[in-house]
Lab assay of single mutants.
Amino acid sequence: LTVEVTLDGRRIELHGLSEEAHEILRHALERNADDKEIKKILEELRK
């Protein structure tokens, strides 16, 4: 799955996400998580 997010003013596409990762990010974006929170989530998903 692919998600497009804006971090530090740049639009980035995240490819190859699992369903779980996609859901976690989608929920964070829906509640307008800040860049710091999104980065933390991405860091966790990379593990």
Rank of each mutant, 00 (worst) to 15 (best):
K39E: 08
E13D: 07
L1Q: 07
K47G: 10
K36G: 12
S18F: 02
L29E: 02
R46D: 09
H27D: 09
I12V: 11
S18R: 03
K40H: 11
V3D: 03
E13M: 14
E37A: 07
R46W: 15
I41Q: 00
R11P: 05
I41W: 03
K47E: 09
R31A: 07
K39P: 01
L7S: 03
L42F: 04
E44Q: 13
D34S: 12
S18C: 04
A21L: 07
E23I: 10
L7Q: 03
L25P: 00
G16M: 06
G9A: 02
E4I: 15
D8I: 03
E19A: 10
R26N: 07
E43T: 09
R46P: 05
R31W: 05
H15Y: 14
E44R: 14
E44I: 14
H15V: 12
E30F: 12
R46E: 11
G9P: 01
I38M: 10
I24Y: 10
G9K: 03
E13T: 15
L29W: 09
L1K: 09
L42V: 08
T6R: 05
L7K: 02
V5W: 01
V5Y: 02
R26W: 03
E30M: 15
H22F: 15
E20M: 10
D34R: 05
S18W: 04
I38L: 12
H15S: 12
A28S: 02
R11H: 07
L14R: 00
N32E: 08
R26V: 10
L14G: 01
E37Y: 07
T2P: 04
L29M: 10
L14N: 01
T6W: 14
A28N: 01
L29N: 02
L29G: 01
L29D: 01
K40G: 09
R11A: 05
L1W: 10
E4Y: 11
L45D: 01
A33Q: 04
E20D: 09
H15C: 11
K39I: 12
I41V: 05
E23D: 08
L7E: 02
K39N: 07
D35W: 11
D35T: 10
E23Q: 13
E13W: 14
E30N: 12
V5T: 02
G16E: 05
T6G: 02
E44C: 10
E30T: 10
E23F: 11
E19M: 13
G16I: 05
T2Q: 05
R46T: 13
G9Q: 03
L42S: 00
S18Q: 03
L1N: 07
E13K: 13
E23A: 14
I24Q: 09
S18L: 03
V3L: 14
E44Y: 15
E44F: 15
R10S: 08
L25A: 00
K39Y: 15
A21M: 12
G9L: 02
A33P: 06
R26H: 05
G16P: 02
R11W: 06
R26I: 12
L25C: 02
I24S: 06
K47N: 11
I12Q: 05
R46Y: 15
G9Y: 02
D35V: 09
T6L: 12
N32K: 12
K36E: 14
L42P: 00
E30D: 11
H22T: 10
A33F: 07
L29S: 02
I12L: 08
L45K: 00
K36D: 13
L45Q: 02
E23Y: 11
D34W: 05
V3K: 03
L45E: 01
R31K: 07
D34P: 13
L42D: 00
I38C: 03
A21I: 07
E30H: 09
I41H: 01
E30C: 14
K40W: 13
D35G: 08
K36Q: 12
T2L: 05
R10N: 10
A28M: 08
R31D: 04
R46K: 12
R31M: 08
I12K: 02
I24L: 14
H22Y: 15
E37F: 07
E4C: 15
V3E: 03
L25V: 06
V5G: 02
A21N: 06
L42W: 05
E30S: 14
E4L: 13
V3Y: 06
T6P: 02
E13Q: 13
L17W: 04
R46S: 10
E44K: 13
R31H: 08
E30R: 13
E13N: 07
I12F: 12
E20K: 11
H22G: 09
I41N: 00
R26C: 03
E37D: 06
V3G: 03
V5K: 01
I12E: 04
A28K: 01
L17S: 01
E13R: 14
K47S: 12
T6F: 09
L17C: 07
H15E: 08
D8W: 01
L45I: 14
R26S: 08
D35S: 12
L7F: 04
R46Q: 13
I41Y: 02
D8N: 13
K36C: 08
V3C: 07
V3N: 03
A28V: 04
I12W: 11
E30A: 15
L7T: 03
D8M: 04
E19C: 11
G16W: 10
H27Y: 09
I12M: 08
E20G: 08
T6H: 08
E43K: 12
R26K: 09
G9F: 01
D8K: 05
V5I: 15
E13F: 15
L45V: 06
L14I: 15
R11K: 11
R10L: 13
I38T: 01
V5F: 07
D8L: 03
N32F: 11
K39L: 13
H22M: 14
E23R: 15
A28L: 09
H15I: 09
V5S: 02
H22S: 11
I38Q: 00
I24C: 06
L14E: 01
L17I: 06
L1P: 05
A28Y: 06
T2Y: 08
N32C: 09
D8S: 05
A33E: 04
N32M: 11
E43C: 15
H15Q: 08
R31V: 05
I38W: 04
K39A: 10
N32S: 09
D34A: 09
D35K: 05
S18H: 03
H27V: 10
T2C: 12
N32I: 05
K40I: 09
T6Q: 07
H15K: 11
R10M: 14
A33T: 05
E19F: 14
L14S: 01
L7I: 13
I41S: 00
I41R: 00
R10A: 08
E43N: 10
E20N: 08
E43F: 10
I12N: 02
L45Y: 07
H27W: 09
S18G: 06
K39D: 05
K47D: 09
A28E: 01
E30L: 15
D35N: 08
R46F: 15
